[in-house]
């Protein structure tokens, strides 16, 4: 079986503009989109550039747009597409070459929300206690693999690159919900702004494309409730 695969190429050292290139690739039931790309690189055109590593949907390297939808190349299969495949770099990011986008744009947002446990030192030689119920409260949001698919799905991020975005907010929320954490007050100022949770209009597509079931849209909108609360508290404190 063969399939036509179109790739949106960008070779800034040779062409000023991106262009489409078509390849014919053999496939079977198990061929992933990433597998097809690797076939192209090894057999047809070694200049095609893309990121990948674990090929088991946990490292988060291989996010691309496949027929207009953000996908992990290793967890999306050629068999799913009866017609041709069109592979593009992740939407809403700056493209630096072929399928390579500037992931720093995501990392800056991630760093801004202080995504780490902020807590007074407890007993240094003993773990905290945390019941399975307390763990369950945030566990889903801790499953984010930083692949960036949710950013490529989010039109608000597309319109406003300053929007902190679904993935980073999900991780901020993950720490806010952690029973061991005391850093919420430090994270909320970032989330309270227009570029924080309030840029979100609950399109919800971010959660649809998330390969790990994180549901970042839920995190952002739970964040709105928290943000409203924290702003009210601030208002009253400020007034008093």
């Amino acid at each position: 079986m063969h399939k036509e695969i179109q790739i949106k190429r960008y070779l800034p050292e040779e062409h000023a503009e991106p262009f489409w290139q078509t390849f014919r690739v053999p496939y079977d039931e198990t061929t992933s989109v990433l597998g097809a790309l690797n076939y192209i690189k090894e057999e047809l055109d070694s200049t095609v550039s893309f990121r990948w590593s674990c090929r088991m949907a946990i490292c988060g390297s291989c996010g691309y747009m496949v027929n207009g939808i953000p996908k992990l190349g290793c967890k999306d299969f050629v068999r799913n597409y009866p017609a041709a495949l069109r592979i593009e770099p992740l939407a809403h990011f700056t493209v630096e070459r072929d399928l390579m986008v500037a992931m720093d744009e995501f990392l800056q947002h991630l760093e801004a929300v202080k995504p780490y446990l902020i807590a007074e030192p407890s007993e240094p030689h003993k773990p905290h206690r945390q019941t399975p119920a307390q763990l369950a409260k945030y566990k889903q949001f801790a499953n984010c693999i930083n692949c960036g698919l949710c950013y490529a799905a989010c039109p608000q991020f597309g319109l406003n690159p300053e929007f902190v975005g679904p993935g980073a907010i999900a991780l901020a929320h993950r720490y806010n919900l952690d029973s061991r954490d005391q850093g919420k007050a430090k994270r909320m100022p970032v989330l309270n702004t227009h570029d924080g949770v309030w840029s979100c209009t609950f399109v919800g597509f971010c959660s649809d494309v998330c390969p790990k079931g994180v549901d970042p849209a839920a995190a952002v909108n739970q964040g709105k409730v928290e943000s409203a609360k924290s702003m009210l508290i601030q208002m009253f404190r400020g007034g008093a």
């Binding site: 780490y116 446990l117 807590a119 030192p121 407890s122 240094p124 773990p127 905290h128 206690r129 945390q130 019941t131 399975p132 307390q134 763990l135 945030y138 566990k139 801790a142 720490y175 952690d178 061991r180 954490d181």
Partner: peptide, 13 residues
């Protein structure tokens, strides 16, 4: 654990 790793837990925490 102190850095936030979500270790799986027993019922008592």
């Amino acid at each position: 654990e102190h850095w936030g790793c979500p270790w799986s837990r027993q019922a008592n925490g």
